[in-house]
Design a protein around this nucleic acid. Structure first.
Lengths: 210, 210
DNA sequence: GATGATACATACATTCTTGTATGTATGCAA
DNA sequence: TTGCATACATACAAGAATGTATGTATCATC
């Protein structure tokens, strides 16, 4: 086989991405060789090295494939219908995000890779960096919403916004982590929502000391 | 150099464990070779293969070194002073665990390895299994406490114990995860306590629908 | 329809890592 | 004090993975 048309080349590229995503998420990044990816895809390493620089670059490409979608799912509803309801906004964001993770196998696979199947070393450096940066962005959003909630009285002024944001963030992340380990155990969408509701309710009730 | 006394041999073994713990937690398990561990410890791979079967066995030994301590920190206070206060018990347990994680570099390093620096593949299989089993145990404890809390009216009967336990567990885990990524950002002990208080307060307030 | 760039496959060299086999000096027991 | 097991170090073999260099058929362009 030799040169394909542009569409065919793009198809092989996507096939490689799909194959890598599947193998990475099921066996781990370091434990998957480029040879295995190529062979599983019915190709050779030549194809991989044509489309990507190395394993790290391949992983980065996996990230870039879903990054836009992930970001959109989180702050897509940032400026909804004019109402000033930061707490509701946070709730909605978390809901959208969970639903997205639960419904998109691609996002689920990538999160599995980044949270459970890679080591954040040189090999995974750039993708890991992007992931951490995305988390920073998400945290900043949550933090801003909580600040606003305190400002307009949705939360008591005694609430420590930073502590509360870290807790909320940890809650969302922890449920995601737990769900990725054992997806059949519960629905991340509904559980995240109920848990967040409880947490926010607790925040507005107890004037969390200090 | 040749044969040492038993104490010296034990010291060597511990040196290897310490070195491996440090390298694993800072560079990742797959990214650290046995040669590097031996060299860093001022020894050779011969020493490693004398004390351990392979890398996987070494990792398992790392787990076993702190497993008892970890377990004790979690359900050590299971039967305290007779009082029937399951919610307070959960609070205390989480508090002890966080404090333990924050104060013991060894436990922190091992959790870093298991949550951030390994891939849960064959190489890390047995240690990973132990870790997951430990999590299962912790979850079961939390679940039991929440059941009891509902039974004695500390929480409204409308609370879904399983959902609530998963949420609480996710909260603890998520904060731990977040803290391991960025330990300088906050104190896991105080933040976990305030977050759990908010969550539990919310649980007892809202009769979480469905 | 000749030509160059494309989209890979193949071949090669090198490095890294593991596992094992063997060497060896010494502590300890009889 | 002899003898054996211990606690490693050293040496060796083999495979796996990577990166690169090269081959090659075909698409697109003129």
């Amino acid at each position: 086989m030799a040169r394909k048309t542009k569409e065919e080349a793009l198809a092989t590229r996507n096939l490689l991405l799909d194959t890598a995503e599947h193998l990475f998420s099921s066996q781990g990044v370091a434990n998957t060789s480029l040879h295995e990816i190529a062979e599983t895809a019915g190709l050779t390493r030549g194809a991989i090295y044509w489309h990507f620089d190395n394993k790290s670059d391949l992983l980065t490409a996996l990230w870039e494939r879903v990054a836009a979608s992930l970001r959109a799912s989180f702050d897509g509803e940032d400026s909804e219908h004019g109402q000033d309801d930061p707490l509701g906004k946070v709730r909605l964001k978390a809901s959208y995000k969970s639903r997205h993770i639960e419904s998109s196998p691609q996002i689920r696979a990538l999160l599995t890779i980044l949270m459970l199947r890679c080591e954040f070393t040189k090999e995974t450096h750039s993708a890991g960096e992007y992931f951490l940066r995305e988390r920073e962005h998400a945290y900043a959003c949550v933090r801003k919403d909580l600040d606003r909630a305190i400002a307009i009285g949705q939360l008591p002024a005694s609430v420590n916004a930073e502590q509360a944001a870290i807790g909320l963030f940890g809650l969302i992340d922890g449920l995601c982590f737990h769900w990725l380990i054992n997806p059949s155990r519960f629905s991340i969408t509904t559980t995240t929502l109920t848990a967040i509701d409880a947490y926010l309710a607790g925040l507005s009730q107890t004037p969390s000391v200090r």
